[in-house]
Design a protein around this nucleic acid. Structure first.
Lengths: 155, 155
DNA sequence: TAGACTATTTATAATGA
DNA sequence: TTCATTATAAATAGTCT
């Protein structure tokens, strides 16, 4: 982010990687603290360096947030409603693209998604949009199921 | 951080705070992913909104990092994942699920998606959401690209 | 190995649709 | 409300101590 644009991929040089880890970890923790202060959100960040050292940040405290997370996460039992959504051809198209993306591990820090998506024509794009909407619905449903024990009326 | 310098203190306006929370949470997760990719560090971020919703990010996964954190200090340097991928964990997860879904095909109206999505835990759901959001952006971009080339009638 | 410095890139607050 | 856009602040890669 400075002097030169840099690829988001593993830094090979040991000492450079170490320096970057320190700088970016500090930046990450700072951002986390700002999110806490500005939005009254409880935030925890844990980072393990390649060397195995643990660094943690938490407002109000790491352990309190982890406890809360465990508690919330434990609320995802098996008693889930079945949903009925049909897979369309477009959805399968999404799958194919993602498959390629996962295989190729694109260079340049970005996934291959971009390139694949760029090849799509107008008709396919609309199908993709629909497919993604379906995905969003499913994900939203599942999320509400999991979080349903929290009875706050958000938004 | 833009247009105007902003104080790092609680935002009083509800909707503004909500918007800021979303934006900054996304930024935080992105940075966490970059730290993971570039420095081979395991990183987890958990954020609870004021409304009580939980958002989590983790490469390679939230729970694995939390487990590791619980064993604080006990971790040896060899415990660390030697992976450096450009795809996020969430993107791969989406890919895996869609792959399975595409294989099985929509048999009786109910796709495999539902079942796969239902298996997701608390932390993974948010990762899925992020991945899908990214897909939506890409698709939107491409759509606009296409539309801007098809003469002048936009939309 | 650890700070400063700063040229740039990146994130984002405000705005607009 | 939720997008996309844009002007600007903030983060940071490379560099030099």
């Amino acid at each position: 982010m400075a002097r030169r644009s840099v690829e988001i991929k593993k830094i090979q040089d040991r000492s450079k990687r170490q320096v970057t880890f320190t700088k970016r970890r500090q930046g990450l923790f700072k951002k986390a603290g700002q999110l806490h202060s500005m939005c009254d959100a409880d935030v925890a960040v844990i980072a393990f360096s390649l060397a195995g050292n643990a660094y943690a940040f938490g407002d109000p405290s790491v352990s309190s947030i982890l406890d809360r997370y465990r508690q919330a996460g434990a609320a995802s039992p098996e008693d889930i409603y079945p949903v009925a959504v049909n897979l369309t051809a477009a959805e399968k198209k999404v799958g194919e693209i993602l498959e390629k993306a996962a295989e190729t591990k694109g260079a340049g820090g970005r996934s291959v998604w971009d390139k694949e998506v760029e090849k799509l024509g107008f008709g396919e794009i609309e199908e993709m949009e629909n497919a993604v909407e379906e995905m969003k619905k499913l994900i939203g449903l599942q999320k509400r199921r999991i979080l349903s024990n929290e009875s706050n009326c958000g938004e």
